[in-house]
Amino acid sequence: MAYHLKEAGIPFALAGSFAVYARGGEAVDHDIDFLIKEEDAERVLTTLVEAGFRGEVPPEGWLVKVWEEDRLIDLIFKPVQRPVTDETLADTEILSVNAVHMPVLSPTELMIHKVLTWSPHYCDFGRGLPMARSLREQIDWARVHRETAHSPFAYAFLVLLDRMGVIDLTDLSEGPIGGRKRAQLKEVVG
């Protein structure tokens, strides 16, 4: 699939759990996620259908899907309510993934996406902990904090990571977790 997008000159990036795996994280066993820009979605779908994939435009309005035999590939243009931009696609590194060189989303952006998926209807920190642990040295935690500061679930997750010794919140001196708020939080939770 990456080959076809490269040949067509369509920018993309590997994302989701396969990108985590490509960067040294835990093994994966479900669908494959790629990021594309929304203005490229129709062209991506046409290119891949012409190459033999089965395509679908689902009602969600933030992705298109293709199947290669029984493997589902999500082509996402608006993950976690944030549009994929040229800057998003530049926040990558070319890595070899199963002997295919392709752009893989940065660990920081992967963590931001993971944290922003949590809501009152779905909040499974158990899915984020292995990722945070395995990629922790590669992640810009201050950026994760800044870009997810509006989310109470991100706040709780960062506190959990601090308490588990995965990250040190004192390194995040700005925003709601740093400084005085952090001291107050330490008093409450011990």
Results as ranks from 00 to 15, higher is better:
27 A>K: 12
31 D>W: 08
121 H>I: 00
58 P>V: 01
40 D>A: 04
107 P>I: 05
121 H>R: 11
115 V>Q: 02
118 W>P: 01
47 T>K: 03
92 T>F: 03
124 D>T: 10
46 T>S: 13
61 G>Y: 02
124 D>M: 06
113 H>E: 10
115 V>I: 14
44 V>S: 00
30 H>F: 10
106 S>D: 12
116 L>G: 01
26 E>F: 10
108 T>I: 06
70 D>N: 13
31 D>S: 09
119 S>K: 15
72 L>V: 09
75 L>A: 08
101 H>D: 13
18 F>Q: 06
64 V>T: 12
106 S>L: 02
26 E>C: 00
118 W>Q: 08
115 V>N: 01
124 D>H: 14
112 I>H: 05
34 F>L: 13
117 T>D: 06
36 I>L: 03
69 E>Q: 12
93 E>L: 09
66 V>S: 11
99 A>F: 14
122 Y>Q: 02
71 R>M: 11
54 R>T: 09
27 A>L: 12
120 P>W: 11
67 W>I: 03
109 E>P: 03
71 R>V: 13
18 F>K: 05
122 Y>A: 08
69 E>T: 13
75 L>K: 10
22 A>S: 12
82 R>D: 00
115 V>G: 02
110 L>W: 05
24 G>L: 08
105 L>Y: 04
80 V>A: 11
48 L>F: 00
92 T>V: 14
124 D>C: 01
18 F>T: 01
88 T>W: 14
52 G>F: 03
83 P>C: 04
118 W>Y: 15
93 E>V: 14
56 E>T: 10
28 V>I: 09
117 T>K: 15
113 H>I: 11
106 S>C: 08
54 R>F: 05
75 L>E: 09
44 V>Q: 00
87 E>T: 09
90 A>W: 05
97 V>A: 10
46 T>Y: 00
65 K>L: 11
111 M>C: 01
111 M>F: 03
69 E>A: 14
111 M>E: 04
53 F>C: 06
88 T>V: 15
106 S>H: 11
103 P>R: 04
29 D>M: 10
62 W>L: 03
34 F>W: 09
95 L>Q: 08
25 G>M: 07
24 G>I: 11
17 S>I: 07
17 S>R: 12
84 V>E: 07
92 T>C: 13
97 V>I: 05
58 P>Q: 03
89 L>K: 09
115 V>F: 15
34 F>Q: 00
89 L>A: 09
72 L>D: 01
76 I>F: 12
60 E>L: 01
57 V>M: 02
106 S>T: 04
76 I>H: 13
115 V>E: 01
82 R>L: 02
98 N>I: 01
18 F>I: 00
105 L>K: 07
69 E>R: 14
91 D>G: 07
43 R>K: 15
29 D>L: 09
17 S>N: 10
64 V>C: 06
61 G>N: 04
62 W>E: 02
120 P>Q: 06
47 T>D: 01
41 A>K: 04
73 I>P: 05
102 M>R: 07
71 R>N: 08
64 V>F: 04
